[in-house]
Design a protein around this nucleic acid. Structure first.
Lengths: 108, 108
DNA sequence: ATAATGCGTAAGGAGATGCTTACGTGTCAA
DNA sequence: TTGACACGTAAGCATCTCCTTACGCATTAT
């Protein structure tokens, strides 16, 4: 019964979970409101939400018989930080393209 | 024998594979040079590289009996794009913090 | 030619993942 | 109180993941 902690990268590796986070960008939502966007069963949605919860990417708050899930975007920082490490590649390419365009097709 | 295609997000979900990509930032490397950074067996490293290859995150080129792996950073774009969708949260927080600091602790 | 090197692939197994259906529990409504 | 609702959890299953050891196949060195 050990709860494995795959971390944020594991949590976002499933497309359904990324879509769930995307939905929550627009505001807190109860499970049913989330579930209606997916083909899978509601328990399956609950299980995905549990993964997101364990990763700290969402929190839940009880409102009556609902549980509203709220995005915790700061928890995506490890992803942001890691990908930022590669940012210079895009920067370089962009800079190269810009330079190319600014030269006005002058040679090469 | 179906080759599952977990995509880029699946490929970067394993810490070892992220480290492999990080290593390749500094230049192409043959498998042994990559493998010496990990505790796991060399075949395990090969299998991870295969996942990265299938995701298009690296290419391989044969040089004699070596196979050098090369990073293809552009393939990280889906990740960059997805995370960029959340950028405004950091921007907002950063802006809020900056505003707070610039105000010089004036009230609140 | 023979051996050593660099690497992939095959096979197998432990454990994780992702789904399902069945059920339990707390909350609101009649 | 009785039932409907919103949800989690349990159990079971198929499949995937990630590792290992054993082996095969080029390429280079002797």
């Amino acid at each position: 019964m050990i709860h494995t902690e795959p971390g944020v990268f594991g949590a976002i590796s499933h497309p359904a979970r990324r879509r769930m986070l995307d939905l929550l960008v627009d505001g807190d939502r109860p499970v049913n409101a989330i579930a209606e966007n997916f083909e899978m069963s509601r328990p399956a949605v609950s299980q995905h939400l549990r993964v997101l919860l364990d990763a700290g990417l969402v929190t839940e708050q009880r409102h009556g018989r609902e549980r509203r899930y709220r995005l915790v975007p700061e928890q995506l920082e490890p992803v942001r930080d890691w990908i930022a490490h590669y940012e210079r590649f895009w920067d370089d390419n962009f800079a190269r393209l810009r330079r190319h365009l600014e030269k006005g097709d002058k040679q090469q």
